[in-house]
Design a protein around this nucleic acid. Sequence first.
DNA 1: CAGATATATCGACGGCCATCGATGCGAACA
DNA 2: TGTTCGCATCGATGGCCGTCGATATATCTG
Lengths: 115, 115
Amino acid sequence: MARTPIAVLPERERGECTPIDTRMKPERAAEVADLLKVLADPTRLQIVVTLRDLGDAVCVCDCTAAFGLSQPTMSHHLARLRDAGLVDVTRRGGWAYYRMRTDLPAPTKRLIAAL
Amino acid sequence: MARTPIAVLPERERGECTPIDTRMKPERAAEVADLLKVLADPTRLQIVVTLRDLGDAVCVCDCTAAFGLSQPTMSHHLARLRDAGLVDVTRRGGWAYYRMRTDLPAPTKRLIAAL
DNA sequence: CAGATATATCGACGGCCATCGATGCGAACA
DNA sequence: TGTTCGCATCGATGGCCGTCGATATATCTG
C-alpha cells in the first residue's frame, strides 16, 4: 500500500496526479487545529505547561505579574484556555483560580504531555 | 515546593499576589509556539499527519486534488512546512516531491507523533 | 454605604495569515 | 522553437487575534 519510494518513483506521466489518501478526517483536523491554535501563543503555552507541571491552581494576578502583560490581556488568555476546555475556574472571594482540567480527552492529554 | 492545593489555599491577603515560577523559558515558548502555529491549520495538519504515516513523498498536484484548494494555496502551505523545517523538497523534472524530514529534533518528533 | 481590590468585558488598533487570480519560471515534448 | 504542464511568486482581500486603556462587576473592608 506504500507509495513507490521517491528514489524509484519518477516514472510519472504528465497530467496524471495520483490522489493521496488522507490519514486524518477533515472534521478531526479542524478540531485538532483549533486546539493547536489555542496553544500556539507563547503566553498561553507557558501557562499550560506551568499548570500541567504545577498540578495546582493560579489566579490572574499571579500570571499578570509573571508575564508582564496587562490584566485584560491575561484575563483574555485564561478565558481562551477555559473556552477550549483546557482549564476550569474556581472563584473564591475576589480571586479566580485557574487549574488544568483532569478530565481531558486522551488525545488532548497526549498532546499537552508532548509540549 | 508545590503550591498549597486550591481546596486549602484561600488564606490570601489582598494585594499579595504570589508570582508563579514559569516551567518553560520565554525563548523556548516562542519556538514551540511558532511550530504550533505552523501545525494549527487543518490543511497543513492533514498534510503532516499524512506524510508522517505515509513515510513517503507527495507532490503539489496530489495535495491540490486531495484538499480542493487552489494550487497557489497548496504551494503556500507546503512552503510554510518547508520553512519550518518539517519537510524537504526534491525537484524531479517538473514535479516537486515533499516528504517528512527524518532528522527532526526529538521534541518536534514527539509533538508530531502526538497529533 | 464608600472605597479598594480582583477580575471580566468592551471597543479599537495593528498585524498576521489563508485564500485566490494573475503572472512568472523551468522542464519536457513535438 | 513554441507549447504545455507543474510549480513558485506576487498583490489584493477578508478575517482572525493579541494587545491595550477604559469601564463595568463583584467582593471584601471599614
